[in-house]
Design a protein around this nucleic acid. Structure first.
Length: 518
RNA sequence: GGGCGCGUAGCUCAAUGGCAGAGCAGUGGCCUUUUAAGCCAUUGGUUGAGAGUUCGAAUCUCUCCGCGCUCACCA
């Protein structure tokens, strides 16, 4: 199979016309991509200043810069809307101010999508719209390819209907630049995303946590059960893994007497892609010395609700058909009880996988066969319980055998102090009282190694350096991990991770030449 | 990776075996307060790619490419 990138094999007819305009501009001595631009006001600033000035009968001069989104040419008049970072504003070109030649020039040479600089005076049109009456204008950047421009229609009741908007999911994701350029609400999603991350950071900073950066390229991966991406360092001549979690490095810092640490960054997992999974995703983890999972629970509900309050101005959010209230305290549900409620089976009464599977089948359920007890519990959880957890819920106390880095409950070796936070039926975070006994940790590594002998990549590899660190002494601590993308989905009411990632993972663009197949 | 579905003009969509179309965008013309501006005219297509069935394929079949949904996987 021959591979190559698709590099716009040929210009379309629309593009050829625009290229011709480029040449004509240059022939007239006009640079279509000038080096510098000027601007005195954004669209919103110009309108705001005009609205206060017009009461006093004061004139507002403004130079604006932005992208042409619509034009309406009428012979001796032209109207246009440009859009900048603050919004849209109408331009009014009139023969009185600029002369017929410049009107014709604008109509002929300027297309939707072009960047323009306009200087003039603010005024109000007959229909009452605050508008810039243009005295002078200048091309800032010509768009060679037509933007997939939409038209906005404002109905009587003020609602805006967008016609022929770019909707193709593939083009929107692949050409996010075009999606952002024509769909303003997409820009808002990413502004909100930035605000959420900033707010998380501020919350943790304010609580005295230290933000740190740990290696993305790691000689040994760990901290989660996931397949890693493998790469190679040439000079060191060794394979490296892209991290699947931050956990083991952050906990090494507790050994180093840093008591409260966190990191927000990218994790990489070489696994399936779905509406809630991307191969690289943003994770928040923190570790808190001398705290346990109950304290982490309280901090979690404070953190998530305060982020919502700060970013959205409310703790009551909408997600799909659900009205969700993030106000603390959140419901706390012991996992054993939760599973008993939805399946009628008490996992504590069945301490091996055969017994538990039999009990489930006796209730008419169809659990997967040939798996560990931990996996059976996981199945009960994800199939039966999770979908019912719409309002924020902490599910707590998990089986030890699916939690190799969590600390057992005192006097209950089969159960660990762990919780997961659920909202809208999906998991947003995972936390536990961290295991800090180096000898116990070593035996857990060995245990996990045995469980995954068939699948080399997924097993927890022994991390000798981590054990060495633990042997110096690690304070008791509570740890926390949250998929930031999931939180962003929740707070923006987007139901696909692709909607809240600027550049989600997609197959490489390539094509087979006619007749050539593998 | 499995199952189901989709792919038609720059964008949004029609055409279900019988001449590939519409609106917007574009191009030419008219128009001094428009705002999906309007009116007249007009350009634009390898119907994702390739093969097959048929007198005839956007439409039916197969292969491939891409995307979506879903299952599996996934702390």
């Amino acid at each position: 199979m021959r591979e190559r990138f698709v590099i716009m094999p040929e210009y379309s007819s629309l593009e050829k016309i625009r290229l011709q305009k480029l040449e004509e501009l240059r022939a007239e001595g006009i640079e279509p991509f000038p080096t510098r631009a000027e601007r005195t006001h954004t669209s919103a600033q110009a309108i705001a200043e005009f609205e206060s000035a017009e009461k006093e009968g004061r004139e507002v001069k403004a130079t604006l810069a932005g992208r042409i989104r619509a034009t309406r040419a009428m012979g001796k008049l032209s109207f246009a809307h440009i859009e900048d970072g603050d919004g849209k504003i109408q331009l009014f070109f009139r023969v009185n101010e600029v002369g017929q030649d410049r009107i014709d020039f604008f109509n002929k040479m300027f297309d939707i999508g072009d960047f323009i600089q306009v200087g003039g005076v603010m005024m109000r049109t007959k229909t009452g719209e605050a508008t810039l009456l243009v005295h002078e204008f200048k091309m800032l950047a010509k768009a060679v390819s037509p933007l997939p421009a939409a038209k906005d229609e404002t109905l009587e009741d003020g609602t805006v209907v967008r016609h022929a908007a770019l909707e193709d999911a593939e083009i929107r994701a692949r050409q996010r630049y075009a999606d952002l350029a024509v769909n303003p609400e997409v820009r808002d999603v990413f502004r909100k995303r930035a605000a959420i991350i900033k707010s998380l950071r501020e919350f943790l900073d304010e609580k005295g946590f230290l933000e740190v950066e740990t290696p993305i390229l790691q000689p040994i991966y760990g901290g989660a059960a996931a397949r890693p991406f493998v790469t190679h360092h040439n000079e060191l001549d060794q394979d490296m893994y892209l991290r699947i979690s931050f956990e083991l490095y952050l906990k090494r810092l507790l050994v180093g007497n840093l008591e409260k640490v966190y990191e927000i960054g990218r994790d990489f997992r070489n696994e399936g892609v779905s509406f809630k999974h991307n191969p690289e995703f943003t994770q928040l983890e923190f570790y808190w010395a001398y705290a346990d999972y109950l304290q982490v629970m309280e901090l979690t509900e404070q953190m998530v609700s305060s982020v919502a309050q700060q970013v959205l101005g409310t703790m009551k959010i909408k997600f799909k058909d659900h009205e969700i209230d993030l106000t603390p305290p959140w419901r706390r549900l012991e996992m054993r009880q939760g599973l008993l409620d939805v399946t009628g089976v008490d996992i504590y009464a069945h301490t091996d996988s055969d017994s538990l599977a039999a009990a489930l089948r006796a209730k008419g359920l169809v659990p997967p066969v040939g798996v560990t007890r931990g996996k059976l519990v996981d199945w009960m959880l994800s199939e039966k319980l999770e979908p019912t957890l719409i309002q924020p819920t902490f599910l707590y106390d998990y089986p030890r055998d699916i939690s190799p880095l969590a600390k057992s409950r005192p006097n209950d070796p089969l159960t660990v102090e762990r919780f997961e936070g659920y909202v809208a039926g999906f998991e947003i975070c995972n936390a536990f009282t961290e295991l800090n006994d180096p000898l116990d940790q070593e035996s857990r590594f060995l245990e996990m190694g045995r469980d995954y002998t068939d699948d080399e990549e997924e097993k927890h590899p022994m991390d000798d350096d981590y054990l060495r660190a633990m042997r110096y002494g690690m304070p008791p601590n509570g740890g926390f991990g949250m998929g930031v993308d999931r939180l962003v989905m929740l707070l923006t009411n987007k139901h696909n991770i692709r909607e809240i990632l600027l550049f989600p993972a997609l197959r490489k663009e390539e094509f087979n030449s006619p007749g050539e197949t593998e």
